[in-house]
């Protein structure tokens, strides 16, 4: 029989500790894996939504009209934040520009970051932003108010049956500038 604390016990225990350390590392590895998995399978759209696309190779589809709705929310900080126009009728394949208006109510200079989201989810990969105020943090002077632009094209490949998209921005406070 094996005595407690014997060499064999120790070596197995060490291997199990390494296994636990591996699990701990795996927990952190889940963070990048989550993005990779979402991107490869096309499930999540978080990374792709915050990245610039290109309108190259697109030409307008004359006989199709898609309604794009714009919404806004302010989860943190003192902001007034809203779309300038609530909806827009667009042709897939044509480049458009829409605006959001934000006002700094915090009483000091500050910085906001917009995080986009598209609904329905399966339409997200067909909503291509060539330029967006959400790509960079937005600095605001005290009491400053301004309009910010997003330029987008709805890809011609947008599945039939989707005739309405909602683009939503959450405008977060990311600290003073």
């Amino acid at each position: 029989m094996n005595e407690p604390g014997s060499l064999r016990n120790r070596s197995l225990a060490v291997r199990l500790v390494l296994m636990a350390a591996g699990s701990f590392a795996f927990g952190f590895a889940l963070v990048p894996l989550y993005d990779v998995f979402c991107e490869v399978t096309g499930i999540g759209t978080r990374a792709q939504l915050s990245r610039a696309g290109t309108a190259e190779g697109q030409s307008p589809v004359a006989d199709r009209i898609v309604v794009v709705e714009f919404t806004a929310s302010v989860p943190s900080g003192d902001w007034e934040f809203e779309p300038v126009a609530a909806t827009m009728e667009v042709q897939p394949g044509r480049l458009y520009e829409a605006h959001y208006r934000a006002r700094n109510l915090s009483g000091r200079a500050t910085t906001g970051q917009a995080v986009p989201s598209i609904s329905p989810m399966r339409a997200a990969q067909y909503f291509v932003k060539t330029e967006c105020f959400c790509f960079t943090p937005q600095h605001f002077a005290r009491d400053e108010e301004r309009e910010m632009a997003v330029r987008f094209v709805v890809d011609r490949g947008l599945p039939p049956g989707i005739d309405r998209l909602t683009l939503s921005y959450a405008f977060y406070n990311v600290g003073r500038s």
């Binding site: 199990l16 296994m19 636990a20 591996g22 699990s23 701990f24 795996f26 889940l30």
Partner: peptide, 14 residues
């Protein structure tokens, strides 16, 4: 336990 407790520890560390 060895497989998942460390993952939880990682999550709360984050």
């Amino acid at each position: 336990l060895i497989a998942v407790m460390p993952v939880f520890a990682g999550a709360v560390t984050m």
